[in-house]
Each structure stands twice: as structure tokens, then as C-alpha cells.
Amino acid sequence: MLAAACVLSVAVGSLSVPPGQVWQALSDPSVHTIAAEAVRSRVPRTVLGLLVGAALACSGAIMQGLTRNPLADPGILGINAGAAVAIVIAMAYIGLTSAAQYIWFALAGAGLAAGAVWAIGTGGRGHATPLRLALAGAVLAAVLTSFTQALLLPHAQLLQSFRSWQAGGIDGARFTQIEQVLPFFVIGAAMAACSGPTLNALALGDEIATGLGTHVGRARLFLAVAAVLLAATSTALAGPIGFVGLIVPHAVRAMVGADYRWVLAWCVVVGPLLLLVADVVGRVITRPADVQVGILTAIIGAPVFIGLLRTRRLGEL
């Protein structure tokens, strides 16, 4: 299904191109027709969809295992909002214009937001619970979103570009941009690939995890860095795309069970599948204009998540 989605992502778009011309555009670089250029522009878009879909799905799975909160994802925990604030500051006050330039701001903003959510959730009496973390993330996201709008008010020229980025999309992808931030994806993916056994141990509880030889503090820090790195890099390139990190891990658990080694592996497949299908649908439903993929993932993801809530009991992870 993922292979078929990749083929559709290259072959189908807002401009209708016959299959023969699609193949000609990909196999003969000397052809420079409008159709050929349109087809070639879809290749980096497809690659970015693969990267962002896998990164968001794995980030959501790690966050859910780390916080033992079935509703955790980069949007609900305020990580997207933190990255957005930092990117607006970079755009409005420093003059940065590309993802490769403000990736460091996205990472810093996402990291600070994650740290603030954890500090708020663990402050006061008691310890961090899934409910406290979700409430802390929702409140912080609302505050940061309002702060972002306040920063944009005196910079009207940035409103249009920021609105397009805020909707979440992979259109306009370029291999040069992807290459510049690819190391962050690779590092995050490598950390996620090592996270399965640790998440399985933490799922048993801190005391049992400690008895099995896991240093809980170090493990949580490692997992948090991996999740923030994947989410922030995706947000810097494609904007705050929602629901991928929330529903994909649940859908995967329904298929393969709760073993995080399998959950993370299948998130790499199902996340890109959802994102690419949503992107293809967004290209054809309003031809010749495109609907941002972030809008489509919300439209597709909300009913799916409601269905999961109705059919499965989502307790602490």
C-alpha cells in the first residue's frame, strides 16, 4: 500500500498528466514541458512525505510511551506550538527564510516547550500523570499560539507565508532543503530505532524498569530528545501537521500489539502511508488548487480516532 501511495503521489496531482508522459518525465531529463516539470516537482514532495510521515508517527509513539498518555502527540503536548514561536521569531526578527536556517530555532522552541510541559506536569503535589501532562500541554499550546499571533501582528508581510506554513504541507519541497536537514532526521531515526526495548521496560512501571536494569532518568531524557528531534525537524520543514503522531501509533497497536519494537517499525510504514494518501486527495479534490495536507490529515484523522475511541479502551500505556 505504501508503494502504491508513492506511485500515486508522483503520478497524480492538480495537473492531470497521462501515465506515458509521467514515465517520460522521469526517464528523460531533456524533456522540459509543463507536464514534465510538474511530475518532477512531485518527486521531492513524495520523499518529504515519507520522511515527515515516519518521523511524526514515531515521535507520537515515543511520546505516548514516555508519558504513558494515549493522547500524547507533538500538537497536544505543545511541541508544535513551541517550534512555531521560535520559527516566527527567526522569520520576523532575524530575517531567516528557509527551513535549513531556522531548524535550530525549531529545535530550541520544541525542546523548551517539552521541558515546560514536563515541569508543569510534575510540579506541585504528586507526580506526572497522563492527565496532568495533557492539560499542561493544552494550556501551553494555547498560550504559545496566542503569543505567536501577537508576534505576527506588527509584521503583516509574514502573515501569508506563516498561514501557509501553519496549515501544514509538503508542497514546494526541494531536495536542497531536504538534504540540509536530513542529518536531523537520521539522528532522530537512529535514536527511535533503539527506543523499543526501553519503552517496553517503562511500560511495566518505573520500579520494574529499574529492577530490569534501566536507568529511568536517562531513559526518559533519551526518549524525549528523540521525540523532540523528530517532531521539530518535521515541523520546521512541513509545518505543524496534526493527527499523524496521534492516530498512527494507535492504529498500529491495533494490528501488531503493544510491543514497541513492532510499533515503531510499523509507524515507519503507516505514517507515510497516511500522509501521502492525504496529500494526493488534497491535490485532486479542488483542482487546480491544492489543499494543504495538514487540513486533510485532520479531516481523515478525527473520524479514525473517534472510531478507535469507540472500539478500544485507551488506558494508560
Rank of each mutant, 00 (worst) to 15 (best):
A134Q: 10
W165Y: 07
I120D: 04
A156I: 08
Q149T: 12
R132A: 08
R125S: 13
L131I: 13
L133M: 15
G124P: 02
Q160T: 03
A128G: 15
Q149Y: 03
L140P: 04
G126K: 02
G124F: 01
A141C: 05
R125G: 13
G124W: 01
G124E: 01
A141L: 06
G121D: 02
V143R: 00
A150M: 14
L140H: 08
A142H: 02
G124N: 04
H155P: 06
Q166L: 13
F147I: 11
Q157C: 00
L153H: 11
L133Y: 06
L158A: 06
R163M: 14
A134R: 02
Q157A: 13
F147T: 11
L151E: 09
I170P: 01
R125M: 08
R163Q: 15
H127K: 14
V143K: 02
L144P: 09
A156F: 02
Q157F: 01
T145M: 14
L153F: 12
Q157V: 03
A150G: 12
W165M: 04
L153I: 15
P154R: 10
Q149L: 12
A141E: 01
L159V: 14
F147S: 10
R132P: 05
A156M: 07
L153T: 13
A150L: 15
S161H: 08
Q157P: 00
R132L: 09
T122D: 13
F147E: 02
A119I: 04
R132T: 07
